[in-house]
Amino acid sequence: MTYKLILNGKTLKGETTTEAVDAATAEKVFKQYANDNGVDGEWTYDDATKAFTVTE
């Protein structure tokens, strides 16, 4: 299944996707991606759209 990450960081904005077996796996991938790019903020998840959002 495809999951999307929407980044609303102070220095990094954009979107990326990942293929994962479930939302928990996608969340781990996205949190590592955000951490690697220096984005740390409030996380939300919308199951209807399979989209995670992180806002700094």
Score class of each variant (00 low, 15 high):
A26I: 02
W43L: 03
A24H: 09
V21G: 09
D46H: 05
I6Q: 04
D22I: 03
T2Q: 10
G9T: 15
N35T: 14
K28A: 12
W43R: 00
Q32T: 08
V54G: 00
G41V: 02
A24T: 09
K50P: 01
F30Y: 01
K13S: 09
N8G: 04
T25P: 01
G9F: 14
K31Y: 05
A48L: 13
V54I: 11
T55K: 06
T17L: 08
T18H: 07
W43T: 01
D36Y: 08
N35H: 15
T18M: 11
G14V: 14
T53D: 02
N8C: 13
K13N: 08
A24I: 10
V39F: 12
T17H: 10
L5M: 05
G38T: 04
V39G: 02
K4C: 06
G41S: 01
A51W: 06
W43Q: 01
K31T: 05
K31P: 00
T17N: 06
E27I: 09
D36H: 07
D47R: 08
T18L: 13
K10C: 13
N37P: 01
E27T: 04
A24K: 11
Y45A: 01
V21Q: 12
T17C: 11
T2R: 12
A24E: 11
Y3L: 02
K31M: 08
K10F: 13
M1V: 14
E42L: 13
G38F: 07
D22Y: 04
A51G: 04
T44W: 07
V54M: 05
E56G: 06
A26M: 02
D22E: 04
F30D: 00
Q32S: 08
V29D: 04
T25C: 06
E19C: 14
L12M: 13
L5G: 02
N37F: 14
T53C: 07
T55P: 01
N8L: 13
K50S: 05
A24Q: 11
Y33D: 00
Q32D: 07
V29H: 11
T44V: 10
G41M: 03
K10Y: 11
D22S: 07
K50A: 05
D22M: 03
D40P: 04
T18V: 14
T11G: 08
T16C: 15
A51M: 13
D36V: 09
A20T: 05
T44C: 08
K4M: 08
I6D: 03
A34W: 03
E27C: 14
V39A: 04
T53S: 06
D36A: 12
L7T: 04
M1H: 14
A51Q: 14
T25W: 07
T18S: 05
G41I: 02
T44R: 07
V39C: 04
G14C: 15
Y45C: 00
F30W: 02
T55A: 06
Q32P: 02
I6G: 02
E27Q: 11
Y33K: 02
A51Y: 07
Y3M: 02
K31Q: 07
D40G: 08
K4N: 04
A26T: 00
A34E: 00
T2V: 13
T25E: 13
V21P: 15
D36P: 02
V29N: 05
D40K: 14
D47F: 10
K4Q: 05
G38P: 02
T11H: 14
A20C: 07
E42M: 12
E56F: 11
E27D: 04
G9R: 04
A24G: 08
V39R: 02
Y45I: 01
K28M: 13
A20W: 02
A23D: 05
Y45D: 01
A34P: 01
E19D: 10
K4T: 14
D46C: 08
E42T: 13
V29P: 01
G38Y: 06
M1K: 12
Y33A: 03
K13E: 05
G14I: 15
K50E: 02
G41K: 01
L12F: 15
I6M: 05
I6P: 00
G9M: 14
E15Q: 10
G38C: 09
F30M: 02
A48Q: 11
T11Q: 10
T49D: 07
K13R: 12
E15H: 09
T2E: 08
D36F: 08
K4E: 03
A48M: 11
T16P: 03
A26K: 00
T44F: 10
A48N: 11
K13V: 10
T44P: 00
Y33F: 12
G14T: 13
D46F: 04
Y33G: 00
V29K: 08
T16K: 11
E56A: 07
A48K: 12
L12D: 05
D40V: 15
K13W: 10
G41E: 01
A24C: 12
T25V: 07
A48R: 11
A24Y: 10
M1G: 11
T11L: 12
Y45H: 01
L5K: 01
